[in-house]
Design a binder for these strands. Structure first.
Length: 810
RNA sequence: GCGGAUGUGGUGGAAUUGGUAGACACGCUAGCCUUAGGAGCUAGUGCCGCAAGGCGUGGAGGUUCAAGUCCUCUCAUCCGUACCA
């Protein structure tokens, strides 16, 4: 008998699948479609790690399951190949990012294939190729055309290591998302001219649609918090001795009588004007020092600081004079960058008031009613908020206003390795976006990829490339040296997967309308950034009529990460994670690795790495192999091999169909771990049955084995393909083979009834399936163990749960 | 702080509408077998107890014939977030 040898069969089938294009998707197929994918990979020199193995196996199992069920299933593959690591590597190693990608990506091909993932390689997408980024640039042009891309000079988070601007989403614990190590610097602020995408225009619809998404709840919640909608009002305060007004945003207009001071953010444009002569020096000093501070420093400072400006504002509700302070606990980026402070009802204002000895006036009592508020006394908070804003609005001093935490998406990066922003800067016309027919703006080849040193990217060194004629006035001008944030590339790649070679359009709308949204999407990261950007861009593509869907991903599963045995993260820098290829090559094979990762825990939990785990699933697969080999070695020529007794056949088919039902339901519901355990249980039962009943080349045994193998196929594609073939099939198990549950085998002649006395288990009895309540209770009482507990006692109550349980209360 | 989740054997984890707690796997124990291997097979394995039986899902109450599951309080851990006016 052959032993199970993954080292032999896995490469064999990988080669056959490749040669027969088994996983090439026909996007125009008449079959129902299914698209399952994981967030695509950022290729680095290190190759795949066990976390990738986890992510892509999840979507692969899904794609395989659907393909077996008869869907035209698409499991795409691509590379998010622009970005910093490749550029930094290029600076260090002295080879161009183009060159290093050309080396790295083919190595990934080998690894993906070794994992047995059913990717469609004909439609592979690489974001750093001009064929792809032409359309990333095109997207920029279109967004600009529709008023959703604009340029603005702003204080931006700046990573000194990357020498580039960062979006809020790219800051992790006050540090750059690429440099969050212990010795890495905290981010700084720098005023830079940037391009922005106006995602805030879509804030409301994104927020509203979030509720209905079939996504992991925690991601939905993060997105809601990230958008951070709040309803309030803007209120104008007149300034003593100044023409200008000070506008504040508040959600608590009801507390207007409790305002005892105003606070401006240090960056506020009125700070300079409001600082009186006596206070000027101190204000300037404070502002200078506050702007330098980083978010991390502000966080660690528990004490509120600030300075008095010397000026006063007039409270529009009662004309009282209120002192104006400058303090860094007020942020310039939120609301209007200025607040009305109500120390009695806001903790931060209270801390500030206590530190600077300012008045605290309570205006709301414990019953949430207004006090010390003149004609508004007695109103509830909700009533007063409404009425005060209405009253002030009559004289134009207040307007209702909705505010969002979410900022516009900054997309400019001062880096070489990205899609050039398709803009020409002309002395006369300013920044001019290129017309479509001048795309792509191809990234020039360079030898030195370091930022130019003047705040611009390395592209400033490409002197020939820099020269371009202004599309408006045709005068000589200079190209933009910033490139696009890589999140732009990844915000629309799922569309390109559907039409990767199209030279005329970003993608074909007919195909996209058939295939979008993606049915299943998973990943262990990017809850807010990428997943929000992709939703935004999809909505934009819908608005301009390119696709009928508004959401990119129907189902999003936020899976857990693979961690060390104690639950701690594998460190990238230490490289202490297990190497999937090493595990495969050591003889356990990809099937055992895949099965372990999917079996170890629910997908949302992630898997804890246990070095005994893969040997465990390898044992399971070996047992599947061995029983099949033993079955195949039975004599198939004799007449009595045809059939086994009806009762035995029924036993076999009963466990078989129970398993089919369980696995089908679990795969649909993404409960992979219990699907696998059901298959293990079924296999154990087959081993037991083989000793108890006739083990022969019979239809029942053939069906039992084949069904089990089909159910395991999404997890372990190689061994199942091999056994399928050995069982006499010439087609692939992976296409259009999924068994139907036959209900007749799910019922049985007898049922097991649990018998309790006073809620405690006393017996399990087997009764006829047709038995009624009286009959079941009669048999329950007849049980000797039950009898010993009820004998001589009065039965107060008999509870009967049909087909399940009897409980005697004595 | 706030928001969200999760607490079940030595370990990872199972348990439809409340109805046999611990499926499946790892580990461990004993026995068998052999081509002595990273094997394979069989049996056992929540805790206490010789047993009958009792106890048991972070803790304390409660509802119920019956609670891992529902309610109240409480503790712990993890994740997200960070002065959002």
């Amino acid at each position: 008998m052959n032993r199970y040898n993954p080292k032999q069969i896995e490469p064999k089938w990988q080669k056959i699948w490749d040669e027969t294009n088994l996983y090439t998707t026909d996007l125009k197929s008449s079959k129902p479609k299914y698209m399952a994918m994981s967030m695509f990979n950022y290729p680095s020199g290190n190759g795949i790690h066990v976390g990738h193995a986890m992510n892509y196996t999840i979507s692969d199992v899904k794609a395989r399951f659907k393909r077996q069920q008869g869907y035209e299933s698409y499991h795409p593959v691509g590379w998010d190949s622009f970005g910093l690591p490749a550029e930094n590597y290029a600076i260090k190693a002295g080879i161009s990012p183009q060159e290093s990608m050309a080396r790295i990506i083919p190595a990934y091909h080998q690894q993906y294939k070794a994992m047995g993932w059913s990717n469609d390689w004909e439609k592979e997408v690489t974001t750093s190729t001009p064929e792809y980024y032409k359309w990333t640039q095109w997207l920029f042009v279109k967004l600009h055309e529709h008023g959703l891309a604009y340029q603005d000079s702003r204080w931006q988070w700046w990573c000194t290591k990357c020498q580039t601007v960062l979006a809020n989403e790219q800051i992790v614990d006050g540090k750059c998302w690429r440099h969050e190590g212990k010795d890495d610097p905290i981010v700084e602020k720098k005023e830079v001219k940037q391009w922005f995408f106006k995602i805030t225009d879509y804030a409301d619809e994104l927020l509203e649609a979030t509720e209905d998404l079939d996504w992991t709840e925690s991601v939905k919640l993060s997105q809601k918090n990230w958008i951070g909608k709040s309803s309030g009002a803007e209120i104008d305060f007149e300034l003593k001795g100044l023409e200008e007004k000070l506008t504040v945003y508040t959600t608590r207009a009801d507390t207007l009588h409790g305002v005892t001071f105003m606070v401006l953010a240090p960056e506020h444009h009125l700070v300079e004007k409001l600082a009186t002569k006596e206070n000027q020096q101190e204000v300037e000093r404070y502002v200078k020092q506050a702007i330098k501070k980083t978010e991390l420093e502000r966080q660690s400072e528990k004490k509120k600081t600030g300075v008095f400006s010397g000026s006063y504002a007039i409270n529009p509700i009662n004309n009282k004079q209120i002192p104006i302070y400058v303090a860094d606990y007020v942020l310039s980026g939120y609301g209007t960058g200025a607040i009305m402070a109500v120390p009695a009802h806001d903790e931060r204002d209270q801390q500030f008031a206590e530190a600077y000895d300012l008045d605290i006036v309570q205006v709301v009592n414990e019953q949430d009613k207004l006090i010390n508020s003149e004609q508004y006394n007695g109103l509830t908070v909700a009533e007063a908020t409404e009425q005060i804003v209405d009253d002030l609005a009559k004289s134009g001093k207040a307007t209702k206003k909705t505010n969002y935490k979410m900022r516009d998406w900054s997309v400019s990066r001062q880096r070489y390795w990205g899609a050039p922003i398709p803009v020409v800067n002309c002395e006369d016309c300013g920044s001019v976006v290129l017309p479509e027919d001048q795309l792509p703006v191809v990234l020039p080849e360079l030898t030195d990829f370091k930022p130019s040193g003047d705040g611009r990217s390395a592209l400033a060194r490409a002197t020939d490339w820099l020269k371009a004629d202004c599309p408006k006035c045709s005068k000589p001008a200079e190209r933009e040296t910033d490139t696009l944030d890589t999140y732009v590339c990844s915000s629309w790649y799922m569309f390109r997967y559907l039409d990767p070679h199209n030279q005329q359009m970003i993608f074909d709308s007919d195909i996209a309308n058939n295939w979008m949204p993606v049915d299943f999407y998973n990943g262990a990261d990017h809850a807010t950034a990428h997943l929000l950007y992709a939703r935004f861009i999809t909505r934009f593509l819908n608005k301009i009529g390119l696709v009928s869907t508004v959401e990119p991903f129907t189902k999003m599963l936020y899976n857990g990460k693979v961690t060390a045995k104690d639950g701690s993260a594998f460190s990238k820098t230490l490289g202490n994670g297990p190497d999937p290829l090493e595990i495969i090559n050591s003889g356990y094979g990809a099937d055992a690795l895949r099965t372990y990762l999917m079996f170890a825990a629910p997908l949302e939990f992630g898997a804890r790495w246990d070095s005994k785990g893969v040997p465990g699933t390898h044992r399971f697969l070996s047992r599947l192999w061995n029983i099949t080999e033993e079955y195949l070695s039975l004599d198939s020529s004799s007449a009595d091999s045809e059939a086994i007794p009806e009762k035995e056949s029924r036993q076999l088919l009963s466990i078989t169909h129970k398993n089919i039902k369980k696995v089908t339901e679990d795969l649909d519901a993404n409960r992979y771990n219990t699907a696998i355990s059901s298959c293990m249980e079924t296999l154990n039962n087959l081993y037991l049955l083989k000793e108890k009943i006739t083990f022969s080349r019979s239809e029942a045994w053939q069906t039992a084995l084949e069904s089990l193998i089909i159910c395991i196929a999404p997890f372990a594609p190689h061994i199942t393909e091999e056994l399928w073939q050995q069982l006499g099939h010439s087609d692939s198990i992976h296409v259009d083979h999924w068994p139907k549950v036959d209900e007749q085998y799910l019922t049985s002649d007898t049922m097991t009834i649990v018998v309790q006395v006073n809620g405690k288990l006393r017996a399990n009895i087997e009764v006829d399936s047709g038995a009624d309540q009286a009959e079941v209770i009669k048999q329950a009482k007849a049980n000797s163990n039950v009898d010993s507990f009820i004998d001589g006692k009065t039965i107060k109550k008999e509870i009967y749960i049909p087909k399940k349980l009897v409980n005697f209360v004595v």
